[in-house]
Amino acid sequence: MIQFKNFTAAFGEREVLKSMTCNLTGNSITAIIGVSGSGKTTLLRVLCRMNDRIENFHIKGNILIGGKDIFRPDNNVYSLRRKVGMIFQKPCVFPISIFDNVVFGVREVTKIPKKDYPDLAEKVLREVFLWEEVKDRLNEKATTLSQGQQQRLTLARTLAVGPDVLLMDEPTSSLDPESTAAIEKLVISLKNRHTILWVTHQHDQAHSIADRVLVLKEGQVVDLPAPIERQENPSSLEDVLYNS
């Protein structure tokens, strides 16, 4: 589903990803861990071409999503970003109503008629388990929601434009345990229709939700063995993470 082929990403001279080659299967959750500054965010951002406009950022090699090279000049970057949605570490809702936030991206997709918006909003809000909490206050400002609710709202907003791939950059790091559990449960429920990349700093979280755990180190990804294998060889996690 997602293929990196000799992919290099660099800010000026500093290569963050170094001719990385890797295949990610569709409809699964891949967790990405790695020390701070190892390039996890960069890895997600190149997938939806969010770094295109950073001045000294450049890439080599290819990334294929669903067999199509996302960097080909004839590829429409705006429709790519609708197919590859990104959720940020800190939820960022617009200071407008909850409803308007949910359909914010949908208004750009002209083939969805306006009269379908309420149904669509309800559908995605149910998907993120937020509907019951907000159904009576859809016209209130989204900024009045709690952090955890806001994060689920941004997810609903992204789901509303119909992405195939979901990129989540430490989506639970600013949330309390309950909201974190809610988001984790939610992401697992989304996996049968979406390909999910989840960046996290918590290894237990990575193992409990993901089908595959990748460690990003020195611009390369390596598979992290499943926890059972590791128990036999307790030092291997630290080995993979911190030693070369």
């Binding site: 939806c48 969010m50 705006y78 429709s79 790519l80 970003r81 609708r82 949605g85 990104m86 940020f88 800190k90 960022c92 617009f94 914010f104 991206g105 208004r107 750009e108 941004t154 907003r157 992204t158 434009v161």
Partner: peptide
């Protein structure tokens, strides 16, 4: 963050400015 939120939802530059 507002720019990026709009960008990530696939807004074109003109919609980004307008919305």
């Amino acid at each position: 963050k507002y720019r990026e939120a709009g960008m990530a939802l696939g807004l074109s530059r003109s919609s980004q400015i307008r919305r």
